[in-house]
């Protein structure tokens, strides 16, 4: 057979093979696209979780549980059922989340329950309005928050990892216990303690044990810290807003928790 004829024969065989490959691919294409869309949604949740951890968890809690008196939870049934009606939002919950995260809240919608961090109650997060997040990051955070729906509506029960029981020494040490109170009660959302938290709404507490000694002449560090927690307006550090920190910590904290927290803060020198 001449090269010419051989190439025609092989060419025809190859064209049929190629057609066969493309047809197989085409049959699979719809499923592949659906799978890819699902994987993209999953990756958006993963990225959103990281953005949330870095930007939102300080106030709204690592798992969206919020801080009593300050920031509302965003992982509960109320958020997923009645919240839109409450604020009179006509769009979808996703739009509501994106809009709120992007532009923030100048004043709280529930000042008695969740005062937020003052004025504004929540800052604008979009880089279009002076915040740090790009639109795609805000979109991903919204996708992540929406993924709380099944647990919020109790359709799915999440087994949580039991925190390891504190060792007996830790249990006996008021400073260690106080540190847990500081973290559990969301103090770190507003106050920085280097190596522990990174809030910037309230004054830095990294060396509060030393600072408190000299803040008010004639007042002991312990008294100053106690009074500042129970009545935050008593002494406001220059450059910070008044009326931001909740004034009901005498109700929120058990008396032992309170004394542990004070002991912990006093130890910060």
């Amino acid at each position: 057979m001449s090269r010419f004829n051989l190439e025609i024969l092989l060419g025809i065989i190859l064209v049929s093979f190629t057609t066969f490959i493309v047809v197989i691919y085409a049959f699979n294409e719809e499923d592949r696209m659906a799978e890819e869309a699902e994987a993209q949604h999953a990756r958006a949740i993963e990225v959103g979780a990281t953005v949330y951890e870095n930007n939102c968890s300080g106030c709204h809690g690592p798992k969206g549980e919020g801080i009593l008196g300050l920031c509302p939870p965003i992982n509960d049934g109320q958020f997923f059922t009645t919240r839109l009606e409450e604020v009179g939002w006509s769009g979808s919950l996703e739009d509501y989340i994106i809009s709120t995260v992007a532009s923030g809240r100048t004043t709280s919608t529930r000042p008695d329950e969740y005062a937020g961090q003052g004025r504004p109650a929540m800052p604008a997060w979009s880089d279009e309005f002076g915040g740090p997040l790009r639109p795609d990051q805000i979109q991903n955070v919204a996708t992540f928050i929406l993924n709380w729906e099944s647990t919020a509506l109790e359709e799915f029960v999440l087994e949580e990892l039991a925190t390891p029981t504190p060792s007996p020494e830790e249990e006996a040490d008021p400073v260690a216990r106080g540190q847990r109170v500081f973290l559990d009660r969301g103090c770190g959302g507003c106050h920085t303690i280097e190596g522990l938290s990174a809030g910037t709404v309230g004054p830095n507490q990294t060396n509060i044990g030393t600072v408190a000694e000299t803040r008010i002449p004639g007042m002991s560090a312990e008294d100053y810290i106690q009074e500042s927690i129970l009545d935050p307006s008593a002494y406001v550090v220059e450059g910070f807003q008044d009326d931001v920190m909740p004034k009901n910590y005498n109700e929120l904290l058990a008396s032992e928790e309170f004394s542990d927290l004070v002991a912990f803060l006093l130890s910060l020198r």
Binding site: R3, E7, I8, L10, G11, T18, I21, Y25
Partner: peptide, 24 residues
Amino acid sequence: LPDLFSHEVYLVVLGLFILLLVTI
């Protein structure tokens, strides 16, 4: 015509087949 041309057409077919096979 016809030798070089037919060979080119054959190479197009061969190339597309290999490219699609590898890609997919």
